[in-house]
Write a protein that binds this DNA or RNA. Structure first.
Lengths: 216, 216
DNA sequence: CCCGCCTGTGAAGAACTATTCACAAGAAAT
DNA sequence: ATTTCTTGTGAATAGTTCTTCACAGGCGGG
């Protein structure tokens, strides 16, 4: 369950939001000031922080900056009663995920939250080491052709692959097969035959999908 | 429209197939012998060759090999009245795309043809240079993060990107941005702001799709 | 005008990736 | 038994990609 921290000096506003967000299936906590929010943030990691721009003592931009310094991965949605283009641009530059003006429709806030969470998921994926390995494997044409071959023929020996690809030096193929094995894309049975691993079948799906997205 | 070459010494069989395949929307030509098929193949490029295994003069495997030497990209579907496992395996090793026994149901042949054409399309894509460029771009984590950032923020200046990624040396970012520009994924307006190009939007879709296919 | 910041270039080298080569153990064929 | 083919290993080398650094023009503020 996703955790949201509501930061606003208006107690009624906090209560209202808490109710709505809890109802929508989120875990929420509240803070009445930027200082409190920063303290809570240090104790615990939130997925999203809803931050009022206008609060006594610390201004919105500084709060935002500090909150993101404490937890670089947290997503901050700015909320303000006095929206100006300048503030909005500034906040976005400092890493706010979105910027919405009071008053707002509840549904709009929920949509924003969903979108921001969706983007966060994407971010995890972009920085995932597995992702890296798979994409590196796909980046080489020889390896792509090996994958393609194994997909079409199910099960092949080293020399079959080598000859089919018209490669002279079999150790070159060995090299790429080794990488594909390490990436978990290809596997080898006791008879030394190569075939696509489960992961590799997924990879094929990826390639097929990419196909539709590139102009040929 | 896809072109199919029918190779069989039986004139009636050729006529039947021609009728069926023309009805199914393919352009067809016929050859009564392997020699004729090779000659036709040299003149013109076919997408698929339906090759009878048992023909006088030249045997099936040799025909297959020669046809594929003349046109390495052509897909050959072997057809034979006397199917043996050995011949089938042999034919597949020499690059036949499939191997079906006479008599066969028309529908089965049409399905096979569709599948082979589908795979051929895939092959084009696997060996497409654009594909290579895009995948190379995606293979680097910094570039993936730049793409992600530009997707989230629409439009950013060099130093914004640099700081957001926590990179000290801005020229490193310049380097990757240059590659992304060359790959047509990122573009720059007159004010020097960077944003995702059309191609880059597609790339984002690719990443999103890959996301669903990798275990996180 | 000078200073600092932004946006770059180009060269040098580091780091990583891919190819080639010499070699070898084991299986299959002759 | 010898030869040939398959499946590798590991080291040297070649090639690419990435990073770092020195430098420089443009632009805005004081």
């Amino acid at each position: 369950m996703k955790k949201i921290l509501i930061v606003d000096d208006d107690a009624e506003f906090r209560l209202n939001l808490t109710e709505v967000l809890t109802g929508a299936g989120y875990r929420t906590e509240s803070a009445a000031s930027a200082q409190e929010a920063i303290a809570r943030s240090e104790e615990e990691e939130f997925d999203i922080i809803l931050l009022d721009f206008m609060m006594p003592k610390m201004n919105g931009i500084d709060s935002l900056r500090t909150l993101r310094r404490v937890r670089p991965k947290v997503k901050v949605i700015m909320i303000t009663a006095f929206a100006t283009v300048e503030n909005a641009v500034d906040a976005m530059k400092k890493g706010a995920s979105d910027y919405i003006s009071k008053p707002f429709k509840i549904e709009a806030l929920l949509t924003t939250i969903r979108r921001v969470l969706e983007e966060a998921k994407f971010e995890v994926c972009v920085n995932n080491p597995d992702f890296d390995r798979t994409l590196s494997s796909l980046a080489n044409p020889i390896r792509r052709n090996i994958i393609k071959l194994l997909h079409a023929r199910e099960n092949m020996r080293l020399m079959e692959i080598t000859r089919e690809l018209g490669i002279d030096d079999h150790t070159k193929v060995v090299f790429h097969l080794k990488l594909l094995k390490e990436a978990g894309i290809v596997e080898q049975d006791k008879e030394k035959s190569y075939s696509l691993a489960k992961e590799g079948k997924r990879t094929i799906d990826c390639l097929r999908m990419l196909e539709n997205y590139l102009p040929l």
